[in-house]
């Protein structure tokens, strides 16, 4: 049996890309293996861990729960597309590095895409809100403490361009 293939056009990180995929091809596999954008990672294949999160029209979505053909006509942003065109880091990427918000780095692209979208709508989160914002992503390395810190730090960079460090989070 030969599978029916679909020619699809996807706009990924501002660039029009084409791929030929069967209808069952997951968006995560298409991005990673057809388009070579391996920054998006797959941690559970069932939509729980959030490592595969990309932005679809600016909103965070699990690319392992979406077919590539369903992404036709939508604007996709992966971790590779967060930085400025000149290659300088997005505030969230910079904050993750400054705050040690990552260890192995496998879950990180999912956090970065989630947080970048979140901060666009919530430019000045409290600590509790920052923690809530990352509540749908799993990380097995960091214990989240420095990720929360990185959310606040990124907000500050975006809002003020200040270099003042973020205070330690108080026990809840």
């Amino acid at each position: 049996m030969t599978e029916q293939m679909h020619e699809i056009e996807l706009r990924v990180n501002g660039v029009l890309r084409t791929a030929t995929v069967p209808s069952r091809r997951l968006l995560s596999d298409c991005l990673r293996h057809d388009l070579g954008l391996t920054g998006t990672h797959v941690g559970c294949e069932h939509g729980v861990c959030g490592a595969c999160t990309v932005q679809i029209d600016g909103r965070p979505m699990r690319s392992c729960l979406m077919f590539a053909v369903s992404a036709r006509g939508h604007e996709i942003t992966t971790v590779e597309g967060l930085a400025d065109p000149d290659g300088s880091m997005h505030a969230v990427q910079q904050a993750f590095r400054e705050c040690h918000g990552l260890q192995c780095g496998f879950c990180t692209p999912g956090f970065l895409t989630v947080i970048a979208a979140y901060l666009r709508d919530h430019p000045d989160p409290t600590e509790a809100e920052a923690r809530e914002a990352i509540g749908g992503n799993l990380c097995r390395c960091t214990g989240y403490q420095n990720i929360v810190k990185a959310v606040l730090r990124a907000a500050r960079i975006l809002n003020e361009g200040t270099d003042a460090p973020v205070a330690e989070e108080a026990p809840r």
């Binding site: 391996t38 998006t40 993750f96 040690h100 780095g105 496998f106």
Partner: peptide, 16 residues
Amino acid sequence: LPRKEDLRLVMGEGRF
């Protein structure tokens, strides 16, 4: 010190 490995990992340029 901030980590050297982060430069690739936060950019989606890690190689797993």
